[in-house]
């Protein structure tokens, strides 16, 4: 099938043999964006979390056909070295990653959380951030999530000043 998806702001017209192919593999193998990870393929670990129209989605369990006409954001589109997303900046400030494999999924889940709940409490974090990290970086992640909320608030304030 032919499918059109906006990925990180760029419209991609794709020819997909199997419309039920998980979005994860289209992102990774067809579009060669490797930041979104395969962890379990069962929507259990969250390593494949990305955004579809701004909502956190586990892409290993999301058939590509549902992404037609939608906006997909991956870790590569969240921010970059020149213009890091507040979540990425906070992750750098708190030196969160160890092996790093699960981190893009956690950062995407966190970015989605901050969109909905700009200043999350510990309880909000506990409920919403339910990905799995084997290295046990949760302790630093929690600090980074609070930090990201602050950075995002600062950013919003600065942007409103410049307007």
């Amino acid at each position: 099938m032919k499918i059109s998806i906006t990925v990180n702001g760029v419209v991609k017209a794709l020819e997909i043999a199997d419309e039920n192919t998980p979005l994860l593999w289209v992102i990774r193998d067809t579009l060669n964006l490797k930041g979104t990870k395969f962890g379990c393929g069962k929507a259990a670990c969250g390593a494949c979390t990305l955004h579809v129209d701004g909502e956190a989605v586990r892409s290993c369990s999301y058939p590509v056909k549902f992404a037609e006409g939608k906006e997909v954001t991956t870790i590569e589109g969240l921010g970059d070295r020149e213009n890091p997303h507040p979540v990425q900046q906070a992750w750098i400030d708190e030196i969160v990653p160890q092996c790093g494999y699960c981190q893009p999924g956690f950062m995407m889940a966190t970015a989605a959380l901050l969109n909905k709940v700009p200043t999350p409490t510990d309880e909000d974090i506990d409920k919403n951030i339910i990905n799995v990290c084997r290295c046990g970086t949760y302790y630093r992640m929690r600090k980074a999530i609070h930090k990201a909320a602050e950075l995002q608030a600062d950013k919003v304030m600065n942007e409103s000043k410049t307007l």
């Binding site: 039920n20 998980p22 393929g41 069962k42 929507a43 979390t49 909502e55 956190a56 989605v57 586990r58 290993c60 369990s61 999301y62 058939p63 549902f66 889940a109 989605a112 959380l113 969109n115 909905k116 709940v117 409920k127 919403n128 951030i129 339910i130």
Partner: peptide, 16 residues
Amino acid sequence: ATTCNTCHQSENNMSS
């Protein structure tokens, strides 16, 4: 931010 639809879509997923 982690809703039912983070994992559950409008039809069964046969691979996951």
